[in-house]
Design a binder for these strands. Structure first.
Length: 763
DNA sequence: TACAGTCGGGG
DNA sequence: GTGTACGACTGTA
């Protein structure tokens, strides 16, 4: 007998025979079905070796179906491959490892793609997709998704969330109890007596049966602790909803990404439930649970993974799904190797000549305008993808069908644009506003990463020519925007990669820049938007040599009163909160001025506030946590030639048995005497008398000066800016020769919002 | 003063 | 998802 179910797809993982599929039914019940599923990988190489592999596979205990097939390789076109269909998905990794070891010279494809992504590619499913299932017994006969990741307001799944956290930070203290809350219940469970504690917790998990276990430090401390306690006392805990499955523990890792060292703590993954650790989720801080769910939907990564996605994984996952659906092979090791570069490196070096030196000082009547997702927009608009042949010049679209990259990006871009325009129509207090903002931020993050991957040697779908085509058009677009602005009598104050700051006397509302935006879009074919109109903005000079402007240190206030800050102390994560908060508060006071002329009236207030903060510091009336500095450990302790303050703090931690891995942050105070720092995570009661107040005063003064010096000079000088200098600042020449083969007459059709008519979710 | 270590940026 | 840019700035010797 066949039954039909509908609901939200919750979890997919391989079991011993096939796949386990969890569904949150429309009737509120949680179902676990299974589904037959096979996973195919491909091998290419000399026919003789492939025949050897064929015979070898036939002798293996893992059942496979073998076939010859024709598939498209991104770099070599259509090739003949041996398709190896593994009938038990759980055996895929084991078989592939053995195969690659026995036949190391073959080229392998689709070998290391997770089962979840394969399922997504085959059935167009994703976490929390609305699904319809036909089921016989417990076996799924058919499954189809009823919605797509691109809907702005998906029907929310009725997730049951249980929050569990220790009563203190386990890095600093020994927790004595856990705080549990779910539904309306909220209480503390001491674990002094483990057996009653475990029995109580078990009863609650069984009773409430949460879908999501939301923890603080659950990956690094709480769940490992609970599992150990459970084992030692012989009291089982149903952390997994599928109690026969084992909890998956992933080890910590330190790795490089985007030129930075990164650390990912160990992870504890559940089956049939999700474990989400607030303190170990990369996306968590910025976007919250909504962001995690959005990441899961669009990247099609299981929610527990999506919460901890590292840069590149999300966009790579999406590319893989597109490639599988288009039957394009996914290389196991990327075929080409290029000189290593990273995203911003490429933006910087390729755009090197492009960045204007800003005109230092205070400016009024300034419009800040940005291309919207410039590089992704270019990739979609000009069909730039590793497998798509380029036309004659970089400024023409690639030839033929849309490639993997544009196909992957177009729906994200369209969704982001749709969210942005929806946001414009929502009033200030609409409850959808924060949701849409979280979604737009999540999409933005994916888009930002994608461009870097095109020029990144280890990306499977990277290709340097494609990357160069993108930057070439980026330069061209910025140049055209500059020309449009100058033709319309705006003064260019600054340009940076994909944004411009333009000034014209009396231009004080977005309307005053509308014609310019339209003209730029018209000339470039790329959507451009108003970041905002500034009441005033200050571009800062270099601290080392104040005659030199720096591209990326500025602050200002929009007409709305909103403050925009880049590059200065308040933006840095190694600035003590007391310092950044004071700097921001000063700007809040300055933002009370209606316009630049009003600054002279608020300046005394700002100065009085500074005196107040200085005296608070002198008297140590500042909460000690506000003086904490947090820095990332960049290497192993032994590798420091002159140990940084952070390294010296870590030395103290190690002395009491605590380990800090490269990529992890360490918190410390500046203290008197040697070694000048005091690690926060070893302190019981910090002694405020030891704090190096003088040092904090210097830091504070510095941050104050960054903001107030230019304002004071401008107010005292009466004029706007150039008064700082004895001679005029030379604006750097834009565009090094050769950067653009100027295709003067080349006409770009205008396309404001939609990209090549490609809509998300339509196939 | 020279050199070593850390950060932002993208949005 | 797995390899390290660049320039600005700060801290240390």
């Amino acid at each position: 007998m066949i039954e039909t179910f509908s609901g939200w797809l919750f979890d997919i993982y391989p079991n011993d025979a096939n796949l386990s599929i969890w569904l949150i039914g429309d009737d509120g019940k949680r179902y676990c079905f299974n589904q037959d599923f096979t996973a195919t990988l491909y091998a290419a190489g000399p026919a003789a070796i492939l025949r050897g592999l064929w015979r070898w596979l036939k002798e293996q205990p893992i059942p496979v179906r073998l076939a010859r097939a024709e598939r498209k390789d991104v770099f070599n076109g259509i090739i003949t491959v041996l398709a190896v269909e593994v009938l038990q998905p759980i055996k895929l990794d084991e078989l592939f490892r053995a195969m690659a070891a026995a036949y190391p010279d073959l080229t392998y494809y689709d070998a290391d793609i997770s089962i979840a992504l394969r399922h997504a590619a085959k059935y167009d499913t994703f976490p929390l997709a609305r699904c319809q299932l036909e089921v016989r017994g417990e076996k799924i006969i058919s499954i189809s998704a009823l919605d797509t990741p691109w809907d702005l307001e998906p029907e929310a799944a009725p997730l049951r969330i249980m929050s569990i956290e220790p009563d203190c930070d386990p890095a600093r203290n020994d927790p004595k109890a856990i705080l549990v809350s779910f539904g309306r219940a909220s209480y503390s469970l001491p674990f002094e007596k483990p057996v009653p504690f475990l029995i109580g917790l078990r009863a609650d998990i069984r009773r409430y049966d949460p879908d999501v276990i939301l923890t603080s430090w659950g990956d690094t401390w709480l769940l490992p602790f609970l599992m150990k306690l459970s084992q030692e006392n012989g009291v089982s805990l149903p952390l997994n909803r599928a109690e026969s499955q084992t909890v998956v523990e992933k080890k910590e890792r330190t790795y490089f990404s985007y030129g930075q060292i990164m650390y990912r703590g160990q992870q504890v993954l559940l089956r049939g439930r999700w474990h989400l650790d607030k303190h170990n989720a990369m996306m968590w801080g910025d976007y919250g649970l909504i962001g995690v769910l959005e990441m899961a939907r669009v990247t099609r990564q299981p929610a527990q993974e999506a919460a901890r996605l590292s840069p590149g994984t999300g966009i790579s996952s999406m590319q893989f799904v597109t490639a599988m659906q288009k039957e394009i092979l996914i290389p196991w090791h990327k075929g080409q190797s290029e000189r290593p570069k990273t995203t911003m490196d490429l933006i910087r070096s390729d755009m090197g000549g492009m960045v204007y030196q800003p005109t230092v000082g205070l400016h009024r009547d300034v419009g800040g305008i940005d291309f919207v997702s410039m590089y992704p927009g270019i990739m979609v608009r000009f069909n730039i993808s590793p497998e798509v042949p380029r036309a004659g010049t970089d400024l023409e679209p690639g030839l033929g069908e849309p490639g993997i990259i544009p196909m992957t990006l177009a729906p994200i871009l369209n969704k982001r644009l749709a969210l942005k325009s929806a946001l414009l129509t929502l009033n200030k207090y609409d409850c959808r506003r924060p949701v849409y903002q979280a979604l737009a931020s999540a999409e933005k993050w994916l888009l930002v990463t994608c461009f870097g991957y095109l020029g990144y040697k280890n990306a499977r779908f990277g290709r340097i020519e494609a990357h160069e085509a993108v930057t070439a058009y980026g330069r061209e677009a910025l140049l055209r925007a500059k020309e449009a602005a100058e033709d319309m009598d705006y003064e260019i104050l600054h340009m940076y990669v994909d944004g411009l700051w333009v000034h014209k006397e009396g231009c004080q509302t977005p309307k005053d820049f509308e014609a310019l935006l339209a003209e730029v879009t018209n000339r470039t074919g790329l959507p451009i938007s108003m970041d905002g109109v500034y009441r005033w903005v200050v571009f800062l000079p270099s601290r080392v040599d104040e005659r030199v402007p720096v591209a990326n240190r500025y602050f200002g206030v929009f007409q709305s009163g909103e403050i925009k800050v880049r590059g200065i102390e308040a933006r840095r994560r190694d600035t003590a909160p007391f310092i950044s908060e004071t700097q921001m508060d000063i700007m809040e006071i300055l933002a009370k001025a209606e316009d630049a002329d009003g600054l002279k009236d608020v300046l005394p207030k700002a100065q009085a506030f500074v005196r107040k903060q200085m005296s608070a510091l002198r008297m140590m009336k500042v909460p000690v946590e506000k003086l904490l500095v947090s820095q990332k450990l960049s290497r192993e302790l032994g590798e420091y030639s002159t140990p940084s303050p952070a390294a010296r703090a870590v030395r103290q931690l190690e002395a009491c048995g605590k380990v800090v891995r490269p990529g992890q942050r360490v918190r410390f105070l500046f203290t008197l005497g040697k070694p000048g720092v005091s690690a926060w995570d070893v302190l019981e009661q910090p002694d405020t008398r030891c704090i190096d107040v003088a040092r904090y005063r210097i830091l504070l003064q510095r941050a104050v000066d960054t903001v107030l010096d230019p304002i004071e000079q401008s107010v005292n000088g009466g004029k706007d800016c150039e008064c700082l200098y004895l001679f005029p600042i030379r604006k750097a020449e834009t565009l090094a020769e050769g950067g653009s083969q100027n295709l003067g007459g080349h006409n770009v059709p205008s396309n404001h919002i939609h990209y090549n008519g490609m809509q998300g979710g339509e196939r």
